[in-house]
Amino acid sequence: MEPFRHLDAVAVPFPRPNIDTDQIIPARYLNRLRDEDFGAWLYRDLRFAPDGTEVPDFPLNRPQWRGARIVLGGPNYACGSSREHAVWAHVDYGIRAVIAPSFGDIFRINGLKNGLLPVVLPAEAVRNLIAQVEAAPGARIAIDLPAQTVTGPDGAVHAFEIDPFAKHCLLEGLDELGFTLGLEEEIAAFERRYGRENA
């Protein structure tokens, strides 16, 4: 997975509370394989009309927010059914971070394992960032993962918390399997010693 260190990108506001994973990716796409482009199905039924044409008002379809790599979300972002595909849809679309007052817990944890950074900021701070990107089309937000800060278009710096192990994995671009494989020499040495001692 692609390492995450610094991100300076356009942020799209989507502050509706309690957005659930059925909206993020409808269940009919859950039987698709990981090598397909899940980005095409991100918010499929909100982004597109049934005939496949774009819904002009949907934030991701607005000219100023195309190419956004950050989502400014509402409280309890991505609650609902457990589906890793909801994270894949964000990542494949090009989203690398979601900033919200709170997250559906499964989505938050899936994000950390798939290179999508969930940033929890106080509701007031998120509202403030949303007001700024709505006022200035194309406004950018900077995320510094080593420093654990978000810098808004106004230059205000917001600190955020992240689990140290999850942070390490994101910085190195490792999922948990990748992390374990990085210890392969130690594991092999243990196996040899254990084999000898218990022969």
Binding site: P26, A27, D45, G80, S81
Partner: peptide
């Protein structure tokens, strides 16, 4: 046990 929008079809 889920009644999200579109859960049982659009």
């Amino acid at each position: 046990n889920r009644n999200f929008v579109g859960r049982q079809g659009p």
